[in-house]
Design a protein around this nucleic acid. Structure first.
Length: 265
DNA sequence: ATGACTCATTACATGAGA
């Protein structure tokens, strides 16, 4: 069984590419982030025609998370139990479309799009840290309720845990993604008992999952490793391999992120 | 070549992303 996660950066702009990827890589479950589409405009039919069921959460052109499965899909949860809300200027706080949980063939797959943070002093950063904090709290609760649970927390975490996860740590020092507080948010998931299986299987340095569109970042391999898969112990034991699909960053019309796949026994 | 941002929007400039 193959589970993939991909920040697709607009599903409508990359629907054909996504369908083609599913076919070529024989993906059973695909967690998408940044679909940038409202639920009403989600292309359900295209996935149904390819043999997949779909669960999606999206209000407008921002954020948006989905799980696409050909091995069953039930028990849809459209937000984390304690997911914090975010208030845009002049608007009421809203729990954004950043977490979608679905049960697929006995595995609970959460597609997660952690808030970016924008800048250290920006309110969005406090939101990011609160999101990570509640994620770890909820995840710990799930594992306490059932230590044998099969849970995959996958997606765009918008945190680079190690200095070698970014092409130049100095560039990010006063920006986002590498601060101790942000990194602590991911450490908390490990403390809760979840294992980051992409690092277990691909421990190499400078293995990136995202390259900015600007300044020839991809040809120069100046990227970031910010897409991960935190698995409950019972599921982590079943993971036999991980692949970062670097080819998906090539060519015109690519997302700035590549898919990350888990091969599960 | 993997190539000098890209996406969506009551769009023709702006906000957001990382």
């Amino acid at each position: 069984m193959r589970i993939a996660t991909w920040n697709v950066n607009s599903l409508r702009a990359r629907l054909d590419r996504t369908l083609d990827y599913l076919r070529r890589h024989q993906i059973d479950v695909l967690a998408l982030q940044e679909t940038k589409v409202a639920d009403a405009a989600f292309p359900d039919e295209a996935f149904a025609a390819a043999g997949y069921q779909v669960a999606h959460r999206g209000f407008d052109q921002w954020n948006g998370v989905a799980v696409i499965s050909r091995v069953g899909l039930e028990g849809v949860q459209t937000a984390l139990p304690h997911q914090p809300a975010f208030a845009k200027p002049g608007q009421e706080p809203r729990v954004e479309a950043r977490a979608l949980g679905v049960s697929c063939d006995g595995i609970t797959v959460w597609s997660l799009y952690v808030p970016h943070g924008r800048a250290q002093a920006d309110p969005h950063m406090a939101y990011k840290l609160a999101f990570l904090d509640t994620l770890a709290v909820d995840a710990a609760t799930w594992l306490a309720a059932d230590p044998s649970a099969q849970i995959a927390l996958v997606g765009d975490f918008n945190v680079a845990p190690l200095d070698t996860d970014v092409w130049d740590p100095a560039v990010f020092k006063d920006l986002t993604h590498t601060s101790p507080a942000e990194r602590a948010g991911l450490t908390a998931l490990a403390t809760a008992g979840f294992r980051e299986v992409t690092r277990e299987h691909l421990p190499g340095e400078h293995l990136y999952t995202q390259w900015d569109y600007q300044k020839l970042r991809f040809p120069k391999n100046q990227g970031m490793r910010i897409d991960f898969a935190f698995c409950s112990p019972a599921l982590a034991d079943r993971v036999t391999g991980v692949e970062m699909v670097r080819d998906e960053r090539k060519g015109s019309g690519a997302s700035d992120h590549v898919p990350v796949e888990l091969i599960i026994e």
